[in-house]
Design a protein around this nucleic acid. Structure first.
Lengths: 374, 374
DNA sequence: GTGACTTGTCGGCCTTTCCGACAATCAGA
DNA sequence: TCTGATTGTCGGAAAGGCCGACAAGTCAC
């Protein structure tokens, strides 16, 4: 499946992964959470009880590969980590303040747009309804003087393969549609309603197209949480501490400009345990065990990370962790948390109150900060 | 148009060019005919009257590139020639006897088949009627036990691009058809009735597909000559002298085996002046002038050759020319000449009688053997 | 010449795709 | 809450493509 590990364009990678996903930069320092890595795996990971594994390991990122599954187009990353001995720890090399979290690399961010496929998009009607914003911002400029305005849109997928779509502006009321070429794309990529499509205008002007598989079964992806989260106003707002815990604001700038401000409605999809329909290629338990063993003994190791909105990252920027640790999390404390909706068309906030502060699995992972917040 | 000059598989090249087209081997010696080169050009070439240009120049082939037009898929060759001074002439390095003409490289010849597209093939019925012979010899073996027997045929074009066709054996009476994928191919390649398609099974087992554009306007390609050629029996048969004057027998071996022997009916297409519908890329007069100027001054030069069945070659194997010269062409002498039909499905023979021996253009090209035979 | 085989063309029918109508939903006032 | 903008879904219509029937053309005897 991964005969040739060809790195893909990082910008396209990030667009496909979603704006909430963050990968630590090359040579930066991170904390590696074996427990998080285990949760990231498909099966259950049984750590040998004989050896005590540290809950978090300080590492440096020595290599970074942005990859895409050759079959499913799902993006993933391979990160090589080198553990750093305790006496060499220095948090200062990543000087990210709380406020600057999320503002890095904003300048080089290309315009992108994601949409979750509706039944009409995916069912063989043969067409795709293009949100106006996407058509006007991402697609090549359409000549509206023609009747009807039509053009051929050419887009490259993560493998560099070229797809052509007929883009037409028609109907009453007028709307943007992709017609010819779309059904071929849907069939080839085996897209179903609930999957997302990502359009991105690269810096060289080329249009790229990526896909995000729906997390759950066919037609899924819009299940709302049955938990007791409610829309609420909060006063005690902290900068979001865990750089990877779905708490990272990073929406398209143009989207920001368009919406003007954030709405505070309780809306969004929240699936705490990611689970793919994908054909495979996910992380296997053995790989986790191997990585953890190497990490524990201070040797360089490699981890494979499949980005999932709402799935915790297990390699977190050292500075972010440190910042989080500085906050004294207490019962009753209220916090604000950003969620990206499935199609990244908007970002919502959950306002919550800390109900309890407890270690998730006190037996296996004493003193671990992992999942301290539920 | 020719950003990257990527040589294509010589076998596919020859299959596309047609079995009548012969390219001299690398390092062999040839005679270069400026007059023939001029005729090969699109426009009319006005040679400067000041300089006397020799009618034929002895050269060595120093480089050979088999190319295909990136737009039209038409094949052409670039041949680098180095003139050889008169005192170094040696005919002996190409020891081709009269009888062996056409028998070289026969062993390495892959199975190929060409068919001229009918209206039904080209018109948007969406299907292609595959001649039984082609399906059974060139295509992958079909499982006839299935009902109906179906497979997907994958073929590479001259650019290495992959095309897929549904190959089905159905109808009453049963016949082989290409359905799904065919109309896409026709549209992309802008094929019309009269164009030819070439299937070739390469030595590595891969199936290749090439095209040959019809010579004349749309729907053409089957005009029969209005000349006085008639079917006839001949007694004085010479081996064919001009290696490139559409006189070269080189049919598929399997075809030979199938037909058993040659039929002598007067049948075939004969267009003495080739003319493409092609979008361009043909030889420009300036290029001819440049080549001729270099050649005349003994410097290395390059010629571009667009193979056309029934179009004279202007670089002819030295040994073939010498052999031809040895024959005393006289009025009333009868000769035999092979013609390839448009779709190379068969080869016919014209039996002719020499009506006159004369130099084509005595003023410009005194003593030139070029077009001595009309 | 005759019969068997091959294959070009046609009309019927089924599938795919394109289209505007209409309505549900959303954003902003 | 109301209003306008956006876009999801539907059914009709058109186009594309697959099919066997039939017959014209070829070939072998």
């Amino acid at each position: 499946m991964k005969e040739v590990e060809k790195s893909i364009d990082p910008q396209l990678w990030h667009a496909c992964a979603g704006s909430m996903v963050q990968i630590p930069p090359l040579n930066s320092t991170v904390f590696y959470f074996p427990q998080g890595h285990a949760e990231h795996s498909l099966g259950s990971v049984n750590f040998p009880s004989s050896s005590r594994i540290p809950p978090l390991i300080f590492c440096r990122v020595s290599s970074l590969k942005f990859l895409a599954d050759s079959e499913t187009d799902e993006v993933y990353a391979k990160i090589k980590l080198v553990p750093i001995p305790a006496n060499e720890i220095d948090f200062e090399d990543n000087n990210l303040s709380l406020n600057s979290v999320g503002s890095d690399s904003e300048s080089e961010k290309p315009a992108s747009f994601a949409k979750t496929l509706t039944q009409s998009d995916a069912n063989n009607g043969g067409g795709f309804s293009v949100p106006r914003y996407c058509a006007e911002t991402i697609f090549p400029r359409l000549d509206y003087t023609a009747d009807p305005p039509v053009q051929t849109v050419v887009a490259k997928d993560v493998h560099g393969e070229i797809w052509k779509f007929r883009h037409i502006y028609r109907g009453t009321p007028r709307r943007h549609l992709l017609t010819t070429g779309w059904s071929t794309f849907v069939n080839q990529k085996k897209l179903v309603a609930g999957d997302s499509i990502v359009f991105l205008r690269a810096q060289d002007g080329d249009l790229c197209v990526g896909i995000r598989r729906a997390k759950k079964g066919i037609g899924g992806g819009n299940e709302y949480p049955s938990s007791g989260w409610n829309s609420n106003n909060g006063s005690c707002v902290t900068g979001n501490p865990f750089g990877g815990f779905s708490c990272f604001l990073r929406e398209e700038e143009n989207k920001m400009a368009r919406n003007g401000n954030m709405n505070l409605n309780s809306y969004g999809s929240f699936n705490s345990s990611g689970n793919t329909r994908g054909n495979g290629g996910r992380v296997k338990p053995e790989m986790v065990l191997e990585a953890v063993a190497l990490a524990a003994s201070g040797k360089p190791f490699e981890v494979v990370y499949y980005p999932r909105a709402s799935t915790p990252e297990f390699c977190v920027k050292a500075s972010a962790v440190k910042a989080a640790m500085r906050v004294h999390w207490l019962c009753g404390m209220r916090f604000k948390m950003a969620f990206e909706t499935e199609d990244s068309s908007r970002i919502s906030w959950f306002m919550g109150t800390i109900s309890s502060v407890q270690v998730a699995d006190p037996i296996s992972w004493p003193n671990s900060p992992w999942r301290l917040l539920q």
